[in-house]
Write a protein that binds this DNA or RNA. Structure first.
Lengths: 214, 214
DNA sequence: CCTCAGTTAGCACGATCGGTCGTTCTAGTA
DNA sequence: TACTAGAACGACCGATCGTGCTAACTGAGG
């Protein structure tokens, strides 16, 4: 439960009191920030432009966060919640363990295809940008990548336990390969603007899972 | 030959005259720019910091390029030349067609492992950053990604023609999957700082190629 | 050796960056 | 109803951004 949950346990269990309208503003800001980040980048997204996009003053927006880094951390968690709602949660209803793995992959492709984030997968974009910027934001992002891979891995192990996947397969290795195809589909889709990348990703993970069948 | 060559045919067939010391400076600038770009990002790398890193004045550096965009385009081509020298060229000496495909993949992993670029694969980093920034730089980058995939694909097709790979395999699909594992290895290696990602990539493409054997 | 085009540096510009300030307004509470 | 704390604002800070302009220096062809 704890590590399997992608989104953060709670909003830092804030001792800080919030007014209802402020909470609404904060949510609006963070949702826009998450979406804009995939286009402008985490560093590229300036507070001024974000404020203008929301229709709010720069200082008013800034007051919600003590620093840009805190804004980025909050944006990360908001993106994780969106990812959970769009990918992880829908795939939970799958019937069967192997179907659960396939559902996760399908949900991911759909999440790219529907352009939940205008710049493709949030975490693919953020990872590539932050992997060379040491600090708490990178650490949090690294943690999220690990959690996502763990979710995939656990589902694979469950499918093995259910006798639906070859027990000889290394779950971590299989999760690695599946995620590689998903990310490659995202990359081709966003950079080339070509939906054939998503189709290749679908075909790729399907045949890979078929080959791993018990 | 034309499309198979990753690096640009020539430096824009410059009608511009160059002095020997200027040419040397330009090369120094571009090599540093290519390497720093994988850490700072193409937009994140400022001319001032690049100049300081080289030990040169900002305006002196700037005079070599009419604009930051031209610097970025030249940086892209320099990175392509480095990639050609470090990955494509070494893999040319492979004995046999299938060995050629494996050599490309191995050379790529080695290029990541040796940290030819301090921030991992240049094109993985640049693609993720620029895929949402329309303009000539993105177009050039898109072209380079296509060329790289074509190189992989052509080698696969050659291996099929030589009877070393199953003729039923779709070369484009196989190239997609192999590249997905390579990029995933790069991503894990740079973000998690864990060499196990590269090992997974190696194991992944090896078993995938083994499965595709004729 | 002279000349000229190619380097390179110094300086300054307008814009924008993250961040701070004092102030006003208002939602929630007692 | 009076009080308080959070929310939002506009003005402003120093720093840095990309980009010009100008002048000094120098390598190479005549």
């Amino acid at each position: 439960m704890s590590a399997s949950e992608f989104a953060r346990p709670a909003a830092t269990s804030s001792a800080r009191r919030r007014r209802a309208d402020g909470e609404r503003s904060r949510a609006t800001i963070l949702e826009a920030a998450a979406r804009l980040t995939t286009v402008e980048g985490l560093d590229g997204l300036s507070i001024g432009r974000l404020a203008e996009h929301i229709g709010m003053s720069k200082s008013g927006l800034y007051a919600h966060f003590g620093s840009k880094e805190e804004l980025q951390l909050a944006t990360l968690d908001t993106a994780a919640e969106i990812f959970t709602a769009e990918v992880i949660r829908p795939a939970r209803q799958a019937a069967g363990a192997l179907a659960g793995v396939e559902a996760l992959c399908d949900a991911f492709i759909s999440y790219i295809e529907r352009k939940v984030f205008p710049g493709g997968c949030f975490f693919a974009a953020a990872s590539a940008e932050l992997d060379t910027h040491p600090g708490p934001v990178k650490e949090r992002l690294r943690e999220l990548q690990r959690i996502w891979l763990d979710i995939l891995e656990r589902r694979i192990a469950a499918a093995q336990a259910a006798g639906e996947l070859d027990p000889e397969e290394d779950p971590a290795q299989l999760a690695f390969e599946l995620n590689g195809m998903l990310n490659m589909g995202n990359s081709l889709f966003v950079l080339q603007g070509d939906a054939v990348g998503l189709e290749r990703a679908r075909r790729g993970f399907r045949s890979r899972l078929a080959a791993a069948r018990a």
